[in-house]
C-alpha cells in the first residue's frame, strides 16, 4: 500500500499542520465572524422589519378606527339635520294648513251668509209675486179689486200656516 511508505509521513504531516492551522486561523478570525455578522445583520433586519410592519398595522388600525368614528359622527349629524329640517317643514305645513282652514271656514261662513241673504230676498220677492198673482186672480175671478196691502197680508197669513 503506497499510503504506508514511511518516508512521506513527516512531510505530509508537516504540510497538513501548516494547511490546517492556516485554515483555522483564517476561519476563526476572518471568515466565520464575517458570516456570523451577515447572519446576525439579516436577523436584526428581519426583526426590525417585522416590528415596523407591526407598528404600521397599529397605525392603520388607529386610522381606520378614527375614520369610522368620524363616519359615525357625520351620520349622526346628518340624521339630526334631516330630523330638524323635516320637523321645521312639518311645522310650517301645519301652520299653513291651520291658516287655510281658517280662510276656508271664513269663506264658507261668508258664502252661507250670502246664501241666507239671497234666500231671504228671494222669499221676499216671492211673497210680492204671490200677492200680485193673488190680486190678479181675485180681480179676474171675482172682479174684486183687492188692495195690495191686503193681498200681502193674506199671503203672509197663508205662508205662516
Amino acid at each position: 500500500m503506497p499510503q504506508l511508505q514511511f518516508w512521506h509521513f513527516l512531510p505530509q504531516f508537516f504540510w497538513l499542520a501548516v494547511c490546517f492551522i492556516t485554515l483555522y486561523l483564517v476561519m476563526a478570525f476572518v471568515a466565520l465572524p464575517r458570516i456570523g455578522s451577515v447572519l446576525a445583520q439579516r436577523r436584526e433586519k428581519v426583526e426590525s422589519d417585522l416590528d415596523a410592519a407591526e407598528r404600521a398595522r397599529g397605525d392603520a388600525d388607529a386610522a381606520l378606527a378614527a375614520y369610522e368614528a368620524s363616519l359615525v359622527g357625520a351620520r349622526e349629524a346628518a340624521h339630526k339635520a334631516i330630523g330638524e329640517a323635516s320637523h321645521a317643514a312639518s311645522k310650517a305645513a301645519e301652520a299653513r294648513n291651520h291658516e287655510l282652514d281658517g280662510e276656508i271656514a271664513r269663506q264658507i261662513e261668508e258664502a252661507g251668509r250670502a246664501i241666507t241673504a239671497s234666500k231671504a230676498q228671494a222669499m221676499e220677492s216671492l211673497s210680492g209675486m204671490a200677492a200680485d198673482a193673488a190680486r190678479a186672480a181675485t180681480a179676474k175671478l171675482v172682479g174684486v179689486e183687492v188692495s195690495e196691502a191686503d193681498a200681502r197680508q193674506a199671503v203672509e197669513a197663508a205662508k205662516d200656516a
Binding site: L10, Q12, W15, L16, C19, L23, M27, V30, A31, R34
Partner: peptide, 22 residues
C-alpha cells in the same frame, strides 16, 4: 519537508475553503 502532490492538494483544499468562505 518535501512538498508532495498530497501537500499540494491539501493547499488546494485550504485555498478552496478560504475562497468559498470569504
Amino acid at each position: 519537508l518535501h512538498i508532495t502532490n498530497s501537500a499540494i492538494w491539501m493547499m488546494a483544499a485550504t485555498a478552496l475553503v478560504i475562497v468559498f468562505t470569504t
